[in-house]
Simulated scan of single mutants.
Amino acid sequence: MEEYTHYGKQADVFKHLVLCEVLNNEVPAVYVDTNSASAVYQLEHTPERDYGIYHFLQNASMNDKLKDSLYYRLESGAVLKGCYYGSPALAMKVLRAKVDKYHFFDLESKSLENVKAFSEVEHLDDRVIIRECDSTKGVMDLLPALPETAFLHLDPYEIDVKGTDGHTYFDIFVQATQLGMKCLLWYGFMTLDDMLRLDKHIATCLQKADIQKNVIGSKLIMNNIEKDAISYNPGILGSGLLASNLSDKSNHQLLDFTRLLVGVYKNSRYSGRDGGVHCAKEKEKALKTAVFKAFT
């Protein structure tokens, strides 16, 4: 497995901005990261990161909500050190010793060594459990032992591809939601056809599990995304977040931050092209068909 290289790109900004605020609101007893990758990365300028974290930090300061966000404050400090915080570092920085156990899953041993080293620096290593395995099976096996107060951060990109035990990451999201756990699931897509296929898959699964009322979601999509072709690639052309069993405050912030990021990227450019984005928000309790009723 190749080491994660998407850190600091626009999709990371979207998911990590929301993740920090949600964790601060919910304060779970147990934190589970299904695709942790590294805690800290060395940061350097690339077209993708100039469009991602560097653009965000430069422009978010103009909005009080974004400037006051935990993500802005944490990454601002990290960038001054030439670094970028991945989700393990952000989770540990936000939750500290309020969490009894952190479970970090990944297939890349170097990434997990990075996570362990960061936990030692933060004096949280006695709370951290490193799991080098296929997390579709590993998390499914772990679910029965987790308390209802657990929080699952699922960050797979592909949510409908089966792992070694026949389960998908969306299966994990559904089962954890049914057990009453709090979840935040990120996924990506590169064309509108891919987005619509995933919309239908998600809606059908949620209806079958009868958990629509527990789930809320949002998508951030580049304006130049095409129906079935990829003309350029700043990292990800579209991504979605699905959250379940969260507080009203967290649900509101998920939708609000998506809207604010549209403003941050208004009139932006990526390699000379339009870098603008738009959002689509889904309230699954309003679903009456197998396709999301999305609104902007």
Rank of each mutant, 00 (worst) to 15 (best):
A176W: 03
A176F: 01
T177F: 03
M181G: 00
K182F: 02
K182I: 06
C183Y: 00
L184V: 06
L184E: 03
L185S: 02
Y187K: 03
F189W: 07
F189V: 01
F189G: 03
M190S: 14
L192M: 14
L192A: 07
D193Q: 15
D193M: 13
D194I: 01
R197I: 13
L198F: 09
K200R: 14
K200A: 08
I202G: 00
T204K: 11
C205R: 15
C205F: 09
C205P: 00
L206G: 01
L206C: 09
L206M: 09
Q207N: 12
Q207W: 03
K208L: 10
A209I: 05
K213A: 11
K213P: 00
V215L: 01
V215M: 04
I216M: 12
I216R: 10
G217L: 01
S218V: 13
K219Y: 13
I221K: 06
I221N: 05
M222S: 07
N224H: 13
N224Q: 15
I225N: 00
D228M: 04
D228T: 13
A229L: 11
A229V: 15
I230H: 07
I230M: 10
S231D: 13
Y232M: 10
N233Y: 12
P234W: 04
P234N: 09
G235A: 06
L237N: 13
G238T: 08
G240A: 08
L241K: 08
L241D: 04
L241M: 13
L241R: 05
L242C: 10
S244V: 03
S244Y: 00
N245Y: 08
S247G: 06
D248I: 12
D248N: 14
N251W: 08
N251Y: 09
N251R: 15
L255A: 08
D256Y: 11
T258Y: 13
R259C: 09
R259V: 10
L260D: 13
L261K: 01
V264H: 01
Y265A: 02
N267C: 08
N267V: 09
N267Y: 12
N267Q: 12
R269G: 03
G272L: 07
G275S: 05
G276L: 05
V277M: 12
A280Y: 10
A280N: 12
K281H: 14
E282N: 12
E284W: 14
K285Y: 14
A286P: 02
L287A: 08
T289P: 01
A290M: 11
